[in-house]
């Protein structure tokens, strides 16, 4: 290595200090968690009925949320990326607002719309006897509301990138717009869809604020893992630590599985 390269590679002292401080800030809580977890009672908590129930509910609802996010989010992303609908920027802002909204506010908004006295909820109750709040579907709705934007934005940039002469070539070969979409556009966008789905799933799995506001805290139906963790803090801190550890492991697995792919997938975002 030449002197010049060594010189260029050197980071200014002030930046290095602050950068390492940030590293410590992220690493310390996780390390503390690992240190404080009462590993001896791990098997007790993992096999504990209340914990399994919450874990099962969380996995189940977050998977349903992810599937719904793909079904609704991919078409929305396509509208945002490819159509000429007026006010596209405004619609994008509306549809991704929940990403930056405090989750509790999202929950209140869901109550106002789909609650028993809500704008739509009242009609659902009067006409069909359907009451959404404090049910398992409400958990899914809360998760979908806050998590779907991750998929929409990721897939939108995927659609914007895959546009090109390949789709036009497919048209001239006799393919209808729908055939082109399913056989050319979707496969080309698949990495973005996978990345968006994983992000959405991770966000849905960790959802707390909107869920507890709109769906409440009923064991077996709406008490998800994050809510169980919070409740455990009040009774048994060891349980809280252990459940938290489970979620850390899940998150690390997701990060490793993605290997920075999502950064690339949303890198082309305008």
């Amino acid at each position: 290595m030449s002197r010049q390269q060594r010189h260029d590679a050197r980071v200014p002292i002030a930046l290095a200090v602050l950068g390492w401080l940030a590293v410590a800030f992220f690493v310390l809580p996780i390390m503390a968690l690992v240190l404080r977890v009462p590993w001896s009672s791990l098997s007790d908590v993992i096999t504990d009925d209340a914990t399994t129930e919450a874990l099962t509910l969380s996995v189940f609802t977050s998977v349903i949320t992810t599937v719904l996010a793909i079904v609704l989010g991919v078409p929305l992303a396509w509208l945002l990326a490819r159509s000429n609908i007026p006010g596209r920027q405004f619609i994008r802002a509306l549809c991704t607002l929940s990403m930056v909204l405090p989750p509790v506010v999202a929950g209140v908004a869901l109550l106002a719309s789909l609650g028993r006295r809500g704008v739509v909820g009242e009609i659902l109750d009067d006409w069909f006897g359907v009451r959404l709040p404090f049910t398992m579907p409400a958990v899914v709705i809360a998760q979908l509301f806050v998590a779907m934007p991750f998929l929409v934005l990721t897939v939108e940039s995927g659609f914007a990138r895959s546009a090109g002469t390949v789709e036009e070539a497919a048209r001239t070969l006799g393919a209808s717009p729908w055939y082109v979409f399913t056989r050319v556009t979707l496969p080309a966008t698949q990495p973005a869809i996978v990345a968006g789905a994983v992000l959405t799933w991770a966000r849905a799995l960790g959802e707390f604020g909107a869920t507890i506001t709109f769906a409440g805290n009923f064991p077996g139906t709406t008490r998800t893992l994050p809510i169980a963790t919070y409740l455990a803090l009040e009774s048994d801190i060891d349980d809280a630590l252990l459940i938290s550890m489970v979620m850390v492991v899940i998150s690390v697995v997701i990060l490793v599985a993605l290997r920075g792919r999502w950064v690339g997938a949303i890198g082309g975002m305008r």
Binding site: G164, T165, E168, A169, A170, R171, T172, A175, P177, P187
Partner: peptide, 20 residues
């Protein structure tokens, strides 16, 4: 008539092969 209804074929300058 949209492209798919015209009995033609178009060889693009960049060939436009479907990558996957």
């Amino acid at each position: 008539s949209p492209p798919e209804q015209r009995p033609l074929a178009y060889v693009f300058q960049d060939y436009a092969l479907i990558e996957h």
